[in-house]
Design a binder for these strands. Sequence first.
DNA 1: CTAAACCCTGACATCTGTGGCAGAGTCAAG
DNA 2: CTTGACTCTGCCACAGATGTCAGGGTTTAG
Lengths: 120, 120
Amino acid sequence: MRIGELSRLTGVSVRAIRHYDGLGLLISRREDNRYRVFGPDDVERVRLIQLFLSVGFRLEEIREYGPCWQGDASVTQTIPADQVAAFYGRKVAQIDRQLAALHTLRTQLKEQMDRLPNAD
Amino acid sequence: MRIGELSRLTGVSVRAIRHYDGLGLLISRREDNRYRVFGPDDVERVRLIQLFLSVGFRLEEIREYGPCWQGDASVTQTIPADQVAAFYGRKVAQIDRQLAALHTLRTQLKEQMDRLPNAD
DNA sequence: CTAAACCCTGACATCTGTGGCAGAGTCAAG
DNA sequence: CTTGACTCTGCCACAGATGTCAGGGTTTAG
């Protein structure tokens, strides 16, 4: 599919997708006319990027993780598997930190709510 | 305490703290010489701000929540309690969305890890 | 008194994600 | 062929968080 369709399918602007592509977060082939061509997997990838972004990751950080999803096999054959695993491990650890932070926040907010003069 | 000490205690730059103060996220009194004066509670507040930031909230969003922590009592007396509760409710809901997103991410990463050619 | 360390405001600089526009090629329908 | 919808690249703009620098007070130790 071309960039417009990917944009419609994901709800992400064409501009943003081009940006992701420019940073190497997507693996776009090109047609003869230089038009970007995306596969169905890219829909998932773009959604994943949005997910990452929504929880405070920066594109550069997401890119580190990029090699892992660039074709499941192609990369895991050129990069040592344990290194790929380490990629995942770091991201998961980072996510766990985020989760912990959010739990802390949630707890604190709840505590403060409970200390309210009970408006019922 | 003055801004420098608050900075040391929290690890947040003086510049950033001034920024938070300028946006109304902190409640600083002033000395006669215009120096900002912070209370011990502000250490906690600044840490909380960092927590919020680390999980993708923007200062402006944090500020909405500000009225809730600006002296626990002073505000809950001038603002209807249910309105304050609504503040908290929105933030908690927002945090829950973040949590859900993170869980999704974590799950997806784990799935992809498991699909790795097992490098042991 | 003086120097170092600290504080102030204000303005400009940087980085990141994104929007918008210009100028130009491509393609499909009439 | 023409028109409209799409695409391309490149550049400038903007918001948000923070750094940095300038120019100027304040405090404190010696």
